[in-house]
Measured scan of single mutants.
Amino acid sequence: TTVHLNGVTYTFPNPEEARKFVEKLAKTLNLKVEVHNGTYHIE
């Protein structure tokens, strides 16, 4: 599972880890999250 954040790409072997990371980040920084083909894009 891949996460794109400010031009940096993070790869998680575990989709659940990626989801938790994204949710925590989005909540902390009040960001918008979009998912395209299983890839998270955070703005």
Rank of each mutant, 00 (worst) to 15 (best):
T1D: 06
T1Y: 05
T2R: 14
T2H: 15
V3M: 03
V3N: 00
H4P: 01
L5P: 00
L5D: 03
L5K: 01
L5A: 04
N6Q: 07
N6A: 10
N6D: 09
N6L: 13
N6F: 15
V8A: 10
V8N: 09
T9R: 13
T9M: 12
Y10L: 14
T11I: 13
T11A: 09
T11C: 15
T11Q: 11
F12I: 01
F12C: 14
F12G: 00
P13Y: 08
P13R: 09
P13F: 10
P13T: 09
P15C: 14
P15M: 10
E16S: 08
E16P: 03
E16Q: 08
E16F: 09
E16H: 10
E16G: 08
E17G: 08
A18E: 00
A18Y: 01
A18P: 00
A18K: 01
R19D: 05
R19K: 11
R19V: 10
R19M: 10
K20V: 08
K20H: 09
K20G: 07
F21Y: 05
F21A: 02
F21E: 01
F21G: 00
V22I: 11
V22T: 02
V22K: 00
E23T: 06
E23D: 08
E23G: 04
E23Q: 07
K24W: 14
L25H: 02
L25P: 00
A26S: 11
K27D: 06
K27F: 09
K27E: 12
K27N: 08
T28N: 13
T28F: 14
L29A: 09
L29I: 08
N30Q: 10
N30P: 06
N30D: 09
N30K: 07
L31I: 14
L31S: 04
L31E: 02
K32Q: 05
K32P: 03
K32I: 11
V33I: 13
V33P: 01
V33A: 02
E34P: 00
E34Q: 09
E34F: 14
E34D: 05
V35H: 03
V35M: 11
H36F: 07
N37P: 01
N37K: 03
N37E: 07
N37Q: 04
T39N: 15
T39D: 14
Y40I: 14
Y40L: 13
Y40V: 12
Y40R: 03
Y40P: 04
Y40G: 03
H41R: 03
H41W: 15
H41V: 14
H41G: 01
I42H: 02
I42Y: 03
I42P: 04
I42G: 03
E43H: 12
E43K: 10
